[in-house]
Design a protein around this nucleic acid. Structure first.
Lengths: 141, 141
DNA sequence: TTGTATGCAAATGGTTTGCAAGGGC
DNA sequence: GCCCTTGCAAACCATTTGCATACAA
């Protein structure tokens, strides 16, 4: 369960909306959530929160390094808990399920390519859009 | 110069806006353009076109395989000519410049990873967000 | 108490759509 | 001439912002 100190450590007051949002990312089995998802889930949990607050808090959490923001094809921003380990994403185009992966060789080549061309990488995102081929494709977003 | 047949071959009538938009992508030295960019450039060229038409034509061209649509961090969709060869993108966070690259080993690993996990890749995009470190960073978007 | 955070509603920015007029073929 | 295409304006959707109130410290 997220503690008030988790927030104070990054310089944010421990308010109810912030605690609930952080807690949601820490406990939900679905790791990738859009602002609208967070808003809907909190309302369902009986938390009287505004959508604008959700957006503000998500942005603050991203700035504080608690969350990572992704831009998949959907057009809406997707957030996930920042657990330190960089990774890439496989996104099922049929059911929206997101699976994570990490490949050291791909990371190495990226560094190499950037260096060759005189760039300094700030961040990078590899999205594989695919069909997951599960018999039922059950992971509805 | 783009010909009426380029459009008829993909099942689209050769209208003025379509010809001018295709021509723009074929001749512009800037390969990556947002709808707004296309609109602004055409107006400057004296073509009386509507922004809605630009959006419609870009979407049709994407469906026809003439253009590829990208979702960089900016929040706006970016289009480029589909020249058959898949490639990835280095995007300068300072000046917006886009540089393309292709790495066979990265492609191989992606295929491998998808296969291992039972996915069938439909499309994939690798974006490296970086600082281009050019002394003047001159390529303003 | 005091300044930051919140909720609401209105504003914004990119993109889409309804509709009547226009233009390929 | 027929039907697809266009331009305009209004609608849409995700996100941001202004402002008066509420709340953590």
């Amino acid at each position: 369960m997220s503690q008030p100190n988790d927030l104070k450590n990054v310089g944010l007051k421990a308010t109810l909306p912030r605690l609930r949002i952080l807690n949601l990312f820490e406990t939900s089995e679905v790791r990738h959530l859009a602002a609208e998802d967070v808003y809907r889930i909190l309302l369902a949990e009986g938390v009287d929160v505004g959508l604008a607050t959700v957006y503000r808090v998500l942005t603050q959490f991203e700035a504080a390094g608690l969350l990572v923001r992704h831009h998949f094809e959907s057009g809406k921003a997707i957030f996930e808990l920042n657990q330190g380990r960089h990774h890439d994403h496989l996104v099922c185009l049929q059911c929206g399920m997101v699976e994570e992966f990490y490949d050291a060789e791909i990371e190495r080549r990226q560094e190499q390519i950037a260096k060759e061309r005189g760039f300094r990488i700030q961040e990078h995102s590899l999205y594989l859009y695919a069909d997951c081929l599960k018999t039922d494709c059950p992971h509805k977003t």
